[in-house]
Design a protein around this nucleic acid. Structure first.
Lengths: 195, 195, 195, 195
DNA sequence: GATGAATGAGCGTTCATTCAT
DNA sequence: AATGAATGAACGCTCATTCAT
């Protein structure tokens, strides 16, 4: 039995780690509480001490992934030493660097509408997607205004294009994608003109 | 009770229709046989008369979707009255026109490795993806050799880019995507030069 | 489809043959109608044409076995060319010669009381056992009166002993028993004195 | 709800008691988990907490019966105050004293080969039978060498005869057998000569 | 005389959840 | 803070049975 606060925190994190891996690879309803606690070397009771129910575990896992993804995006866009081109490159490589998180969120996003009790989570996932899109749009407009980059279409449309590419990369998140970083960056250069 | 052969066939198709919708919206393991037969207005026994088990229902549903997707692709590429530009446009609009099928196959593809009994189906999904990629590559090479279209990168790389766009479109297949056909086709024109 | 009477009769016998083997080796409730008809190369419908339900198939199979056992016993006891010793020997070798029938009846007899719908069959099995015992008793008394055989105990007790041996042989009916006919007959000679 | 360890142990034993009775009277496949837990006044979940599956319940029940039978045999043969005649008598009365256990093991033994997953249990039943036979043979040889008993046939054959009688008694284990101890013991005296 | 389609009850099992300890 | 025992609902599946054809 774990008694101190740190040990309890550690238990909780073990649960989240196992839950994240299993939810990612097997999906929500194919992953049982027993699967999770066995993977973490704990008992069902421990899970119910730290979380109200299975939904809460899932929500915690997905929210953590969403936050991690958000943070990484912010870091890429606010890195002052980066040129605009490098910033876009950093964005495009996000799904590759955080493949687990992207796999989890995407694998689950399309099924969320069928779980009414997870509707709040669904909204958060949507928010994050919109936030990502908005960040890109702002970045592009700012870049254009400052004369740092140009593109053939208006910012709105180009944002969508970039986002489309972005989502295409999601699919490879489970396995190593069949595309190199160089290829991707070349592609960026076709769409955008960096000055 | 349905007794004649046609009625039996109709029963089977009702099952497949309900199964397709439920597997698409809820996923494999969250969809129960009871869900399917209730949706179809039948009994569990009927499902087990027409299919060996749940796996077989799922396999039948996915294979049908794969075949429909394949057929549509072939039709787009072999339409003789189309220019190369129109052929690529027809390809890009596939995920939008067949959103249900794409949603089903993609929603499920990433979880397939965890169901050993569905490994054959997994292989078929992979085959179909490779077949799609190969079709595009051949089309591009042929187009280049005949001088009908050109592109800045080599065919191999351009194929991957096009495929990436394609996969990006998958994600929107559940809901209406936030992108218009015109936008998409403009994008095509940026990547390729049609003569 | 079988049309003539003989073909129908043949179908019925195929069902009984398969049913007998399966009920013997797997028991009543572990044998399904499907098992039987598949073994016989027929369909469930055929079984329900010839028999009202599963119970009736079982009853038919057991009654046939009971009749065959009874007949063989009568033949052994009424064979005029046999000496009393040979008659007892023929009796003792019955379970060995009709191992299938004995296995079926014994394997099932002990469980019959728990199937209320088979109570009539249970009575028949009991009757047959009592009939066997009574036949032996009569035979022994007759033999004693005619001075053809004698034994150390009274006929009643000796009958029971003989019957006990007899039942002991039942157990081997599935596999070849670990005892030779010579051994058995020696044993008979110890219990009885033949003149 | 039972919570303490002793209460849990009690629950398990209630399950085993009910299972033993039902498996004995109805057989393996005609006894459902629901039958067992209802008889024990519990729920299906409780059964699955204490046992992995139905097979494991059955195995536990039969192994317990086998052990009890073995113990009783050892006790009869190792009782130093018994004369050889009394030891054989004690052996012969085993199936009568432990009728439930014998009914269970015998009722089930003949069907075991058809349950592949119970092959280990089958082996144990066979081992126990062989062990019983071997114990008797050793006992007879020792008795003969020490001059405490003699018999008309060689030890091997006499062992088989005794065992045959023994198995004959099995059949009566469900109902009170139609034979008295005195009759049996007389019979023993006919086969063996005690000094 | 026999088939094929369908039903519905029940089975073995899993699983989210509860709660006394 | 965590465990162990138990519940009850639901799941995938089998099976005896029915019945139109």
């Amino acid at each position: 039995m774990k008694r101190t606060k740190e040990e309890a925190q550690q238990t909780k994190e073990q649960l989240l780690t196992s839950a994240k891996r299993l939810f990612t690879t097997k999906g929500f309803s194919a992953t049982s509480i027993t699967d999770i606690v066995q993977d973490a070397g704990l008992t069902r009771g421990a899970a119910y001490w730290h979380f109200k129910n299975k939904d809460e575990i899932f929500i915690a896992v997905v929210e953590q992934a969403l936050n991690d993804m958000m943070e990484e995006k912010e870091r890429a866009l606010s890195e002052t030493s980066f040129t605009p081109r490098e910033k876009l490159q950093a964005m495009l490589s996000l799904p590759l660097r955080m493949s687990t998180e992207y796999a989890l969120v995407n694998g689950v996003a399309s099924l969320l509408p069928t779980y009414p009790q997870l509707s709040e989570l669904e909204k958060k996932v949507q928010d994050r997607k919109n936030n990502l899109k908005e960040s890109i749009r702002l970045f592009l407009e700012e870049g254009k205004r400052q004369g740092a980059l140009s593109f053939k279409e208006d910012p709105e449309t180009t944002t969508k294009m970039f986002f489309l590419l972005f989502e295409g990369l999601y699919f490879h998140s489970q396995e190593q994608p069949d595309i190199s970083n160089e290829d991707l960056f070349h592609f960026l250069d076709i769409i955008f003109c960096f000055h």
